[in-house]
Nucleic acid binder design. Sequence first.
DNA 1: ATCCCGAGGG
DNA 2: CCCTCTGGAT
Length: 210
Amino acid sequence: MNKANQIYNLLYRSYGNIPCPLEYNTNFQLMIAVILSAQCTDKAVNKITPALFNNFPDAPSLAEAGLSEVENIIYPLGLYRMKAKNIILCAKELIKNYNSIIPDSISKLIKLPGIGRKSANVVISHAFNKPGFAVDTHVKRILNRTGVVDTKNPDRIEALIRKTISPEKLSNFSLLLIMHGRQCCKSQKPHCPKCIINNKCDFNKLNNLN
DNA sequence: ATCCCGAGGG
DNA sequence: CCCTCTGGAT
């Protein structure tokens, strides 16, 4: 078995099936929460989305929202001006082009303001149960350290993993790597000696940490 | 000081 | 490829 699948099995054994960390009631709210989650923790997003969705529960209400009011609500998340502008624009385009229904393909989703490839993969996997592989900073770091891939380009990483991991495992593989990245394979001080995949990892061998 | 489930623009 | 946008958590 190839290294990617070995790593999947080891991580799955200890973390299992990981649910979507973002809290939402509708696909629209999921998409907005995903946009807001850029460069901040899911916990921070979950803290402000109740207020946001109480005022603007759907595309029509958010499309008519005042920019400064939205900015005030999402302010703690950082990048708040860009995000406020993007989620309002996104709501407007959703109404105009998709009759307020979240599109179920990556190619359509990435055309919406604030939605890039990473976010599109998150949306299709949680909203439509389609195979999505979100390459975030953790996924990129672990797959490079272990030697599963040798590129920083997220599109290439996604393509490579889609070739080696079966579709039904893709979404959870991304979540498993994120979980392991936060708990163990940290950017600065990775806990290599106690890492459950250290015998599969080039980074660990290189640093001879166990 | 560094990182957080990035995206868009140059 | 690089830079900027952003504040909060650790």
